[in-house]
Computed example of a mutant assay.
Amino acid sequence: MTATSWSVFKVFLRLGLTSFGGPVAHLGYFREEFVTRRRWLTENYYADLIALCQFLPGPASSQVGMAVGYSRAGYSGALAAWLGFTLPSAIALILFAWGLVKFGNAVPSGAIDGLKVVAVAVVAQAVWGMGRNLCPDLSRITIMALAACFVLLVPFVWAQLAVIALAAPVGLLLFNTNKTPAPPPQSPAAKTGVGFVLLVTFAVLLFALPLLVSVYPSQALAMFDSFYRAGALVFGGGHVVLPLLQAEVVPAGWVSNDTFLAGYGAAQAVPGPLFTFAAFLGAASSGSPSGWAGGLWCLIAIFIPAFLLLLGALPFWDRLRLNARIQAALKGVNAAVVGILLAALYQPVWTSAVHSVEDFALGLLALIALMFWKLPPWLVVLAGGGAGVAIKAIS
């Protein structure tokens, strides 16, 4: 690693150890770290990256993290960001696969509830900050509100894609100017030729792996094919990929349904991306590979599509966004992205975390700690977990 990519790794490792709350909360942590605190990215470029990753299949928050790392240190920065953000939860889930009952019982009662409530505050802070910057006028506030309402009333993954697609022509109509935006700071020059090769590689693997499995049947190759397809074809993040994984690994006899569900429960107790559930499934697999080798094998397989798609699309995206008409469309898209995050703040973040007066009080204190006391997010996360344990004990 270069000095720059090593600094990227260290920052993302800390985030990987403390970023509880799912993909929407991860975007809040990223914004606070890289837009507000470190100023690696502008607010507009960060929102542009979110919009791009919403369009791509795979783990959106992990892809945003890879894009941040790439903007800082090129391809090695993208890899460093992924490693730092992913390894903590992957290692924890492989350990869960070895001793699920022991490690599961070691999680204090109420800690996960407290962490979920803190995630509400993290997402609320992100929505407020992005809304102030990306929705400064009545037109964009209206787009934001309509997007949030549509996504809540039509609770399907395609609804988010439809909102972004509709917001683009609205933005082009309302905000078209001749002003060209500046390129993102310190963004390395990406070659479209490399991007094209990466996108072709993604497609070749998607179609070639099933053929290889039919010609050279082996459990290792079959597992790689199954996890690669899961990472390549799912929109909406970790929770959406679960039915695909269950349909692949349980009927094949690699893990039992009880083990699958127990591992999914354990995955809720760790920070970082839910796609690292693949590491648990690989480690818990019967046959070979299993253990550490199986966990790492399946982890790599499910994340490779995200790498190929994101790093393949970024060179074209960075050039497109410098066009004045595209930038006008992005103003509408960015307002819609804020609306999507606002909808996610309510469902599933709020509805899955706030069930009592105590939960609301903890969430309010966490929000004040983040926005006004300016405490670091990792400290608020730890305090929230401890407060959840205390609330559970008292009640």
Rank of each mutant, 00 (worst) to 15 (best):
residue 4 T to K: 15
residue 13 L to T: 09
residue 13 L to G: 04
residue 16 G to E: 07
residue 28 G to C: 04
residue 34 F to I: 11
residue 36 T to W: 00
residue 37 R to F: 08
residue 45 Y to K: 07
residue 50 I to T: 12
residue 50 I to F: 01
residue 61 S to Y: 01
residue 62 S to Q: 15
residue 63 Q to T: 05
residue 74 G to C: 03
residue 75 Y to F: 15
residue 77 G to P: 03
residue 85 F to H: 02
residue 96 F to G: 02
residue 99 G to I: 09
residue 102 K to S: 12
residue 110 G to P: 05
residue 115 L to N: 05
residue 125 Q to D: 15
residue 126 A to C: 10
residue 128 W to S: 01
residue 133 N to V: 08
residue 133 N to Q: 15
residue 137 D to S: 13
residue 142 T to F: 03
residue 157 V to F: 14
residue 168 A to V: 15
residue 173 L to P: 08
residue 183 P to R: 03
residue 185 P to T: 14
residue 187 S to N: 12
residue 195 G to R: 06
residue 204 V to L: 02
residue 206 L to R: 10
residue 206 L to E: 13
residue 207 F to C: 09
residue 211 L to I: 06
residue 216 Y to C: 07
residue 226 S to I: 01
residue 227 F to H: 11
residue 237 G to E: 02
residue 243 P to S: 04
residue 244 L to M: 12
residue 247 A to N: 15
residue 248 E to D: 15
residue 258 D to R: 04
residue 273 P to F: 01
residue 274 L to Q: 11
residue 275 F to E: 07
residue 279 A to R: 06
residue 284 A to I: 10
residue 286 S to C: 11
residue 289 P to E: 14
residue 297 W to S: 11
residue 301 A to I: 02
residue 301 A to K: 03
residue 306 A to E: 14
residue 312 G to V: 10
residue 313 A to Q: 06
residue 314 L to G: 07
residue 315 P to M: 03
residue 317 W to P: 07
residue 320 L to N: 00
residue 322 L to P: 00
residue 325 R to D: 10
residue 330 L to K: 00
residue 331 K to N: 14
residue 342 L to S: 05
residue 343 A to D: 12
residue 352 S to H: 14
residue 362 L to E: 09
residue 363 G to T: 01
residue 367 L to R: 13
residue 379 L to C: 10
residue 380 V to K: 12
residue 390 A to Y: 12
